[in-house]
């Protein structure tokens, strides 16, 4: 009898632990989604600003072409190729801003200021997203999560590569 009760309690605790773990993982997936939504919206805004810069006086025709192409690629990339495309846009912006800063007039100056504020935010957003993703991947790799398939059908979060090279 005693062993029976003991086993029943053990089973109950185990079931509780499983639901607890499932909630935990669900929460992590949710965190990844939120941080990605945030990062995505910031990146979209950056692409829009890049297009505006391409049309403005700062950009010469050649760099305008490069910038426009990079911005469109960044906008249309699928999630797996996103970070590569965004790095391309960072590179294009970096090339232009390296020598274009001096001739900026008020309108362009405010555009550039907006871009630099946005870049600061993107840097933080990437850090938050990367942390959420690594955490989720780490937890999903644990024995209990794999054995009991606690992740269900949720896709494994994609690592976002570029971290420090945003401008």
């Amino acid at each position: 009898m005693k062993t029976f009760i003991f086993l029943a309690v053990l089973l109950l605790v185990f079931i509780w632990y499983l639901t607890f773990s499932a909630t935990r993982l669900d929460r992590l997936h949710h965190r990844v989604e939120t941080s990605w939504a945030n990062l995505d919206s910031l990146l979209q805004r950056r692409a829009a600003i890049a297009l505006e810069i391409a049309r403005s006086e700062i950009a010469d025709p050649a760099s305008a072409m490069l910038l426009t192409a990079a911005a469109y690629q960044a906008r249309e990339a699928v999630i797996e190729k996103r970070s590569v495309a965004e790095s391309g846009l960072s590179g294009a912006l970096g090339l232009l801003l390296a020598d274009g800063q001096s001739s900026a007039r008020p309108a362009e100056a405010s555009l550039l200021r907006e871009l630099s504020e946005l870049t600061d935010k993107i840097r933080i957003a990437i850090a938050l997203h990367v942390d959420a993703v690594t955490r989720t991947q780490l937890v999903r790799n644990k024995f209990i999560f794999r054995t009991f398939r606690l992740a269900g059908t949720a896709p494994l979060p994609v690592t976002y590569e570029f971290e420090s090279d945003v401008l």
Binding site: F20, T23, E33, T34, A37, N38, S41, K121, I124, A125
Partner: peptide, 19 residues
């Protein structure tokens, strides 16, 4: 505050956990 804004993207409020 900009960190707050980033965490608010999901649009939900703070509540007690279901457990």
């Amino acid at each position: 505050f900009s960190i707050y804004e980033m965490s608010l993207v999901g649009g939900e409020k703070v509540r007690l956990t279901s457990e």
